[in-house]
Amino acid sequence: MIKCEILLTVNEESHSIIARQADTLLFVLRNQLGLTGAKPGCLNGDCGACTVLVDKTPIKSCMMLAIEAAEKPITTIEGLCDTPIQRAFIEQFAFQCGYCTPGFLINAYALTKQHPDADDETIQEWLESNICRCTSYQEIEQAVKSVLAKKHEND
C-alpha cells in the first residue's frame, strides 16, 4: 500500500495525516479527521453531498485526492458557524433528512459569498450541482434568496 504523509489545512486547523495517495479527500476528511459532515452519496461526483470548499471553490471531495488538496485551505460544513445561510436553511425548512444539507450549504455559502447579486440563472447554475431527495427545492431556493436579499438590505 502506498501511503504518505499529507498536510491538510481544514477549517483553519493544520493536520498531518498518513493516507494512501489514492485516497480521496472525502475519505480522509471522514475517516482520518472525523469530519463526517461531508457525506458520501455516490462517490461518483454526481450528487454533491460531499461538497467542500478548496481554496474557496466548491469541490466534490469524492472526486479529489486528499493529496491534491494538500496545503490548500479547505472548508467543510464543520467550519461554518452560525452563518446566515445556515440560519436561512433552518428558517425556510430547507432540509428534512439532512443528508444532502452539508453539501448544499457549502455550495450555497460559496454562492452567496461570491455572487451576492446572483440572479436566478446563476443560482440555478450553482445549485443544480446538488441533489436533494426530501425537499421540493423551493424551500432551498427561498433560503438562498433570503440571504441574498439580506445582503442587499445591508448594502
Binding site: G45, G48, T57, P58, I59, K60, N107, E128, S129
Partner: peptide
C-alpha cells in the same frame, strides 16, 4: 463548457 456536468464538477 457550461453545459458539461454540473458547476461544482466543472470546478475540477
Amino acid at each position: 463548457a457550461s453545459e458539461v456536468a454540473d458547476r461544482t464538477a466543472r470546478n475540477q
